[in-house]
């Protein structure tokens, strides 16, 4: 039972990140009916922006020394007394990194939001009124642009970034089994869940959120009711890119920064299809289920199966419910 819980929690932590990635795809789809195949690459840009502001900028010759590593006297003294790899040591290391982590997150969110705005204004808005298929194809083309641009700007070099939260180990016993968790992963999960919940509430209860839902229902009617549909499009892309920036930063802390981060978007697309392209709740359930299923498969069957079993399950569910777990039946598929 203890081991089951261990892997279930690991799976939920992965699932929360999947949900945070998926929320961007659903938001853009709800507002524009466009399935954004390039979302993984926007997340990759978020990860690179985090790397830029949390690693490259603080190390620049002109940056103040405290930005790269904050070392007030009390912190230096406390670190000297803390044993290496102790929980306290991890927290103190994190405190030293805090200025650049804050700069990294803020910079990534702002830069990715600007990128989202740029993509929407230059590539998507000119196609308004055209076939949705054309817009979807543009997102496919965007993959090549973003992938090539990242190689030019940051090269294909692998790099590493500081954790967003202290990566202290968390240990507790259930029965005879010791449960191990990473502090940073727990915090990442909480951040992902709070953001996901916040977006769902925003879409449901705020004026801007209702405008997105109305536009999703019928663009022409929304227009005639005084809703600025271009603004709704723009908001959806910016929302997807800002959540994508945080998802990218979290992924970068777990896996390092490299061009392969873009590929995450494709596995999450399967999750979005499972949950239903236009359903936040459905996608949340799907993301958590796939996360847990992956962890359980890894535990019981090993890594060869962990990459296959969850997606076979996705296919089986889609055979029974082609519109996903909670997606609207009239959703057009590509």
């Amino acid at each position: 039972m203890g081991q089951f819980l261990q892997f279930a929690i690991n799976g939920l932590m992965s699932g929360a990140i999947y949900a945070l990635i998926a929320v961007g795809i659903v938001s853009v789809y709800k507002a524009t009916k466009v399935v954004n195949f390039a979302h993984g690459y926007l997340i990759m840009f978020g990860a690179y922006f985090y790397f830029t502001f949390a690693v490259i900028v603080p190390q620049a010759a002109w940056a103040p020394a405290w930005l790269a590593s904050w070392q007030p006297d009390w912190l230096v003294a406390a670190k000297a007394d803390a044993p290496m790899f102790s929980p306290l040591g991890a927290v103190l290391d994190w405190v030293s990194n805090l200025p650049r982590i804050i700069l990294g997150i803020s910079g990534a969110v702002i830069a990715n939001a600007l990128l989202g705005r740029l993509v929407e204004r230059t590539l998507m808005r000119p196609l308004m009124g055209q076939s949705i298929f054309a817009m979807i194809m543009v997102t496919v083309g965007l993959i090549s642009i973003l992938s090539g641009a990242s190689s030019i700007i940051w090269t294909a070099d692998a790099a590493f970034v500081p954790h967003i939260a202290p990566n202290t180990p968390v240990r507790f016993s259930i029965g005879d089994t010791m449960i191990f968790l990473f502090g940073a992963d727990l915090v990442n999960m909480v951040i992902a869940l709070l953001l996901f919940g916040g977006i769902v509430l925003w879409v449901r209860y705020t004026k801007s959120g209702i405008a997105i839902r109305a536009t999703a229902e019928d663009q022409s009617t929304a227009y005639s009711m005084g809703i600025s549909v271009p603004k709704v499009f723009s908001r959806a892309w910016v929302l997807a890119c800002t959540t994508g920036a945080i998802a990218g930063a979290i992924l970068a802390t777990r896996n390092g920064v490299s061009p392969t981060l873009g590929l995450f978007g494709f596995s999450v697309l399967a999750i979005v299809l499972l949950g239903g392209l236009d359903s936040y709740v459905g996608v949340f359930i799907a993301a958590m289920s796939v996360g847990v299923l992956e962890a359980m498969t890894q535990w019981k069957l090993g890594g060869e199966w962990a990459e296959i079993v969850p997606y076979v399950a996705v296919l089986l569910v889609l055979l029974v419910r082609p519109h996903g777990l909670m997606g609207s039946k009239e959703v057009e598929r590509i």
Partner: peptide
């Protein structure tokens, strides 16, 4: 790439 580190 992108392995599930906690599980491993």
């Amino acid at each position: 790439q992108g392995a599930d580190i906690p599980t491993h």
